[in-house]
Design a protein around this nucleic acid. Structure first.
Lengths: 136, 136
DNA sequence: TTCTTGACTTGGACTCTGTCCATTGTAGGA
DNA sequence: TCCTACAATGGACAGAGTCCAAGTCAAGAA
């Protein structure tokens, strides 16, 4: 499952051991890690990797469109590697768990022109909130 | 337009000069202020008010359901006093302006049971992103 | 009105998340 | 192999928010 690494190399992303480890941490795992969690997992394999490097790499992966930045709680941003499959998020208000979900319908179509106030609307994020089975 | 003050008093919210000023700043203005902006406006009327007090008051207004906390950019949270009229937000990706909008449809109904994974879904937030007329 | 008391406010220290920058290191092409 | 532009480092810094001990005060009781 190293499609991500492959794509990055093809796109000319200069590959360093640090960047490889960050990409590997995100690839495969379908969880939503914070930058610090990514750093912790990366450091498990490459102990001397710095926080700044992890932030740089994450920022570039986001710019490249390979990873999505999700801020579900106003605290640390989370990084979602599932960028190539449109989806929304379901968040547990108690423990913060995030799941990818696929609602029906198209929320963009639900915003009539009269409610756009001249904005060029490019994207829509939907966050469902509730309690997960363990917290309920 | 001091419905808010009235409601708070009725609900037994102990009224201090600091809390009154914070509530007054939010009441009436249909903008989406950050905590620091609320503090600045409150301090214009009550110079010695502290940041901690503003944070406390805002947190309580949110708990009471009188104000909604909105985190549109992963930076400072914004406080939306329009809590009694269901609405969503339209955010300018360039300047950060936030507008209240009223999409048609019910996004909660768009999440089928099979996509809820046992969660008790209580709320849904929709954020439209794009460029406002000035930034486009 | 004055007293009393529990709730509120203060301000400074602290935490967490993220950014910046000068220095050092290195991937990958010539 | 050598160069060099680009990347990594780590420590300082900044913004947003929380915590806490000490002082203050709103509002009910007498």
């Amino acid at each position: 499952m190293s499609d991500l690494l492959e794509r990055l190399r093809e796109r000319g992303w200069r590959m360093t051991s640090q960047r490889r480890v960050v990409a590997e941490v995100l690839d495969g795992e379908h969880v939503h890690l914070t930058a610090d969690e990514v750093h912790a997992r990366a450091a498990a394999r490459l102990p001397e990797i710095s926080r700044a490097t992890v932030y740089n790499a994450l920022g570039e992966l986001v710019s490249l469109g390979e990873v999505i930045e999700v801020s579900t709680d106003g605290r640390a941003k989370r990084y979602d590697p599932n960028a190539h499959h449109p989806h929304q998020h379901l968040v547990c208000s108690s423990c913060g768990t995030v799941r990818d979900v696929h609602p029906t319908g198209n929320p963009l179509a639900d915003l009539p022109a009269t409610e756009r106030f001249g904005f060029t609307v490019a994207a829509v994020e939907v966050t469902y909130r509730g309690l997960c089975p363990s917290c309920a």
